[in-house]
Design a binder for these strands. Structure first.
Lengths: 252, 252
DNA sequence: CACGATTTGTTCGTATGTATT
DNA sequence: AAATACATACGAACAAATCGT
């Protein structure tokens, strides 16, 4: 009777053996593990089989591979904790988004502004698609790129919104200073997806790396939609925390 | 002068060509695309090169492969929209979690109850690790498995919490009925990660598939921690929406 | 139900390209 | 510049799952 715990395939056996050594502390984070050729000899398998095992370990974030250098046990990356907290100075007790209090200084760098007749954004904003512009930005914290953002906004209502954008500014600050408009959230949505080649190269991750995606619509004081935003964040870098400080909130 | 837009590597060229055909509508969702051998012949590359291209498309969710059958254009899976909304019947205006209103009937199936001295959970709950139990469950909606959950809870304070668990119940309902305790959220956190082999087999996804992970701590009426929960959800199935209905919420 | 044909999954061997040291 | 190590690519064979006859 065969042991069903033991996977039949060689590359999985190798992957489990390597994982056990890493998690058992035999190889510590940052350390280089033996070369593919050495592992192939040790386990008496083809080098391609070792590569398949290492590929699995890489996509679950256990190792990093560097061409010409070697394969290294991945260093645990400290998460950027982005908080949404109920705020002391808001007397009505609603949940106010206080972005990035746990991360260092955040830069939002303008990448591009282009007309983009996105049908979905048009529907969400109740604006003719032909009037929409897409504003692409990068979010960095402590020199570390962690997200790419796309905003869709009505170019007729907010002409030149991106002109003279400074790296220290955010979209919310620009709306306030240029148009005297305060943007409030209507809704925000969290998803997870794999990085396609385009996003992967922008964020500096491998194709298929997990992304935390947050999108949402903002509105002004009168309830009129202002912009639709999609943020694609590195899953290995960012976590979003919702704090319920003021009042008990039922979990059911 | 070579066109830098054109990737040099064959497998990427093949991946882009296949992606263009799918997104261009040449092959529709559910349709079987040509076999690896046929594509290898068409592009004049080795079959392993075609496989590498298809692997990329599978990782980003564009195709499904079935051994013995073929490679199919992936059907867009409708997202289960899980909402957290401010609730009408809560007079103090706080954000109350109303789980799963947009999905069908949710079953939480008990998998296992085991003593588990998890140090992190112990710290979060302010309970000696030796008293902790881990309760593993599955979440299903309309016969579709979409999440695996782990709860850590004080076995001394809530003895036999999982005894006689019915599929229609949830942890919150059991705490209410068995111990007359209402669980409120202290905080909830959203992350994204890749599925390791253990989670992948539980959720029926491939290793490396993106997961939306929500963890958090709940407390009772007196502010005392009740449990720590980790939900690992299929990224291709679930989206979490936070609705701000009652009051404007600043985006900054 | 059996069986063969088809198709993807795994593994070997070998060679060459490219980035790092 | 040379050696090292991962990345890409080719060819071949067998295993395992699926499907139609």
């Amino acid at each position: 009777m065969p042991d069903s715990r033991e996977p039949a395939y060689r590359y999985r056996q190798v992957a489990e053996a390597l994982r056990d050594r890493i998690q058992g502390g035999e190889w510590v984070p940052g350390e280089r593990i033996p070369t593919e050729a050495a592992l192939a000899a040790e386990f008496d398998v083809n080098r391609l089989t070792v590569r398949q095992a290492i590929t699995q370990l890489r996509i679950i974030g256990l190792v990093d591979t560097r061409q010409g250098s070697g394969t290294y046990v991945a260093n645990p990356v400290p998460l950027l904790e982005v908080s949404m907290a109920s705020d002391d100075d808001v007397d009505h007790g609603s949940l106010r988004a206080t972005a990035h209090p746990a991360v260092g200084h955040v830069h939002e760098r303008l990448l591009s502004v282009t007309p983009d007749a996105d049908a979905q954004a048009a529907a969400l904003l109740s604006v003719p698609a032909s009037r929409l512009f897409r504003i692409a930005t990068l979010l960095e914290s402590d020199e570390t790129l962690y997200a790419v953002c796309d905003y869709w906004i009505d170019g007729d209502r907010f002409p030149g919104i991106a002109d003279g954008w400074d790296d220290g500014e955010t979209m919310g600050m620009r709306l306030q200073s240029e148009f005297d408009v305060t943007a409030y959230y209507s809704w925000r949505r969290f998803r997870a997806d794999a990085a396609d080649p385009a996003i992967a190269s922008q964020l500096g991750v491998t194709v298929g790396a997990p992304l935390l995606i947050r999108d949402g619509v903002s509105h002004d004081e009168h309830g009129s939609p202002v912009y639709y935003v999609v943020r694609r964040m590195r899953g290995d870098r960012v976590a979003y925390t919702v704090n319920y400080l003021d009042r008990p909130t039922r979990d059911r």
